[in-house]
Amino acid sequence: MSTFKFSLVLLAVGALVFAAARYVGNDYVFFAGYTVLQFIVLATAWNILGGYTGYVNFGSAAFFAVGAYTTVFFHNLYPLPIPLLVVIAGIVAGVIGIGMGYLTLRLRGAFFAIATLALAVVLQTLVVNWDFVGGSRGAYVIRPESVPILGNYINYLFLVMLLLTIIALVVARTIERSQLGYGFATIRDDEQAAEASGVPTLKLKLIATAISGAFMGMAGAPFPYYIGYLEPSSAFGLAYAVNSIAMPMIGGTTSWIGPLVGALVLGITQQVATVTISSAVNLLIVGVLLVVFVVVAPNGIVGLIQDRLRARSK
């Protein structure tokens, strides 16, 4: 399927999802759906670096928070429309990704992973001490009651996130099938052999970090309007870091479908579970699933299904 056709199909599916949500007409569906979509973007973004090149980013929450706080910053300075904020947040997060990558991507993957953990704490400390965006007290971002045509504001946020999800999936799939995707895979397989074959590994890693970070930032941009009150501990929450790793790992890391499957399964489970049980138990389940999957099913749900299909065809 060409990229163009694939985009059309996703748009059609997106339109159906939106129509179905409107049909149900319950605000809760939009609130829950928004969270699931946000996780699809985060998981897809994480996988562009983690799954394709094999470099683990523990700092997803930092990139997400960069996006969220970009919005808070502009909200206090001069409110801009959300789609524009999404673009700005993407640029800011992408640049931070490049900066950090430039410092640490020449080293072994383990150092990069540790540095991303550090980045999250450094940025959080900066935000806590930065009064203009609310500091440790947090910041109120009042969302308008309604928007023209769509009505309730949450419908609008949902639609923005839906479009972002479609863009993220199209980008991930396009990368996978392009020369860039080949280059990423050589880095994951064997970096020295990649260099010997003429692959400019550092440049490709920086590209991956930038794209991945940018999408995480974009996913965070509408968040202040969604939550209404943003404090550092919620924007930098460990839940984002864990989910954006767990979802691709559980879904499968080698193609764009894996993070999508993982995010849908884990995201919906968590939405249901949060209603019935506490959020801590909820996160415990994610952690346990992550460990069980990396130990038992290295290629995730997608890998399990592929194995099953292959076994049947033989």
Partner: peptide
């Protein structure tokens, strides 16, 4: 070798890059 790629794709990498 690049373990996740077919033999032909292994050769494609230096050709492309």
């Amino acid at each position: 070798p690049f373990a996740s790629m077919s033999v032909a794709d292994n050769l494609r990498v230096p050709l492309m890059f």
